[in-house]
Amino acid sequence: MVNTEYTIVEPPDGYSAPGFFATSIDKVVGLARQNSIWPLPFATSCCGVEFMALMGATYDLARFGAERLSFSPRQADLLMVMGTIAKKMATIVLQVYIQMAEPRWVLAMGACASSGGIFDTYSVLQGIDRIVPVDVYVPGCPPRPEQVIQGFMKIQELVGNESIRRRYSPEYKKLLAQYGIV
């Protein structure tokens, strides 16, 4: 039996008349990208367990086009950093970020990834934004799966509305240079 009860996304703004539909390429590409994000789960601790719940049947992140987890950074679009990043781990986060191909986005899930959280200690990196640029922060210790879904939808918004030439813009280059990423 064919399931006919699926939904499709709204078309972007454009000009249409019988037989054709015209819009800018940015919007079409953004639409495609935002609904097929391949996340790279960089799960280190407690938030990683909530991520298991997020991918499980109850919350089901796959509804948002993120069915395919990309464990290889090369094919990933979104780096989801979940859990405490110790200073020992910091270089590895940076390395994973560098290995990801453009366009790339970063979501920091949980207080630890966003700011160090309750672990203001000698061994914990005080927020991953010290080493990689972050697009969306999801607070909570750990955040509920609903919160992460909202954060993910924020990422989708960013992805959908971004210029496909973002990577060549001087602002973006300057941002990466700040982090020492060439």
Partner: peptide, 17 residues
């Protein structure tokens, strides 16, 4: 050796506190 009593707990690089 960080657990010796004379060493601080906090991360030294924090500037917002």
């Amino acid at each position: 050796f960080p657990m010796r009593k004379e060493y601080p707990l906090e991360d030294a690089t924090r500037k917002d506190k």
